[in-house]
Design a protein around this nucleic acid. Structure first.
Lengths: 258, 258
DNA sequence: CGGTGCATTGATCAGAATCAATGATCGTGG
DNA sequence: CCACGATCATTGATTCTGATCAATGCACCG
């Protein structure tokens, strides 16, 4: 989910993060929307120079979605790739009887649709108000041929996702409910930090049901686990559904099963 | 998870082996190996022409491992990439208290090490007698720059792995023990077919413990589930630990949770 | 206000884990 | 060649974590 780490080499020139640009307003193709992009230096665009960015802008459109809007449907023809520029997205797969597994949450600067198959391997929905940058797949592929270091970067992103997927497997297959919930909170915390925020009040835009379907649990178990963590002074729930992590070290140990 | 499509071809050896860790690893005889490669047409070598193949052969070494030999260790410096050319490999991650999650089984033509940062994200061990083709990472990186379509192919392989990883998450998070075991047998079956074999007597080189650690179960539960499937005439255990799938359609339905 | 989601808490149940014993298979050495 | 030990698989008895069933609480919004 987190983009950024390189594969064969670190292609990322870690320019400092410019946080204060205004969000892209209603975008049209008559100016370069990337210039105003708030996640540009965190996303795949960080490896592009001005002319390249211009090329990309020409094939991109900005879209936004309201809570629970579908963004892509599993099995649907994969005509577009996306870059999330704001809000939070859930990716999931369903079993025929309705059981759901959420495979990841995306937010600002995450790339969506990297699976370059004919059809999408999972569904994606907006959790809150979401903005994305959308690229027609065919055009992006052509662009990739012209910008080899972009392709290399995508390979890095992809291989990083693979590492995260394996952590996720350990979590789903071998951790207890408590360890799962704590791991989840810590991963959100690290993610917030990585994108320039604070580690501690972790924001939880998703519902308990989303969390449960991500962790392979039920809402009740997630809720009970939160309650126990509160009782143990390890977390605190505050306004807006945010969670304060009160003892990072203790939480880290719990997450790894010590 | 049968880590997807194969990658680099069975390019061999000649370079002397700098044996840093792997036991029982001997270089093969020095003839041009690609000609005799059994997995070449299944691997990424299908996109290479003769000169390119030659370049690859020059940087490759052939190694083999005995059952339970370590191939790579999680956290170790990732100096090499591998292509499995024979036998079966288990990939796994451990929690500090020893709980193990197997994230995939690799065999002929599978690539090992694609999810790669500076250090390996998981450990790998030989399950049975394993042969691999090993590439120094630095040299392979240089080669990638010269062969762009190899890099593109790699992105495809990587994104395919991601799709498989997501199926694995559904399995671990939302399937019952029975569904897990049946899904596992079917994935092995499909894999055998894809590499030119028969769908039905599925060969199981790994132990019940390996299967359990792959499915997020215990050996006892795996064993009991096999027994129940036998009783229901859905499978039959035959000599050599092979499993006959007696009713594909019924098994497919069970695996998807209908 | 009253309704509609969502979250929390409680009581009970069930599926898989754990604890424990027995069987089967295989490799080794006497 | 057989006996022994070691490893792995199977089966049984019991426990326990997390699921299920059910009710209540809470906040937001028309």
């Amino acid at each position: 989910m987190a983009s950024g780490s390189g594969w064969l080499c670190w292609v990322l020139p870690m320019t400092e993060i410019r946080q204060n640009r205004a969000p892209a307003a209603n975008p049209d193709q008559d100016f370069n929307p990337c210039a105003a992009c708030t996640v540009r230096d965190l996303s795949i665009c960080q490896v592009l120079d001005e002319p390249e960015l211009q090329r990309l802008a020409e094939i991109a459109s900005n879209l936004h979605f309201s809570p629970n809007d579908p963004i892509i449907d599993e099995g649907e023809q994969a005509d577009y790739l996306f870059n999330v520029t704001g809000g939070t997205v859930r990716l999931y797969k369903l079993l025929p009887d309705g059981r759901r597994q959420i495979t990841g949450f995306l937010n600002g600067s995450d790339f969506l649709g990297i699976a370059l198959n004919e059809s999408y391997a999972y569904s994606a929905e907006a959790i809150d108000a979401v903005t994305v940058c959308r690229f027609p797949r065919r055009k992006l592929e052509m662009l990739l041929d012209e910008i080899p270091h972009l392709e290399k970067h995508l390979l890095g992103v992809s291989s990083n996702e693979l590492v995260l997927a394996q952590d996720q497997m350990v979590m789903l297959g071998r951790k207890t409910a408590k360890e799962k919930v704590v791991s989840f909170l810590l991963s959100l915390s690290r993610r917030q930090e990585a994108s320039g925020g604070k580690a501690s009040p972790v924001s939880l835009p998703m519902t308990r049901m989303d969390i449960a379907d991500y962790l392979g649990l039920t809402t009740e178990t997630v809720s009970r686990t939160f309650t126990k963590l509160k009782q143990n002074q390890l977390i605190k729930l505050v306004a807006g559904g945010d969670v304060v992590l009160r003892d990072m070290d203790a939480l880290e140990e719990i997450a790894e099963g010590f």
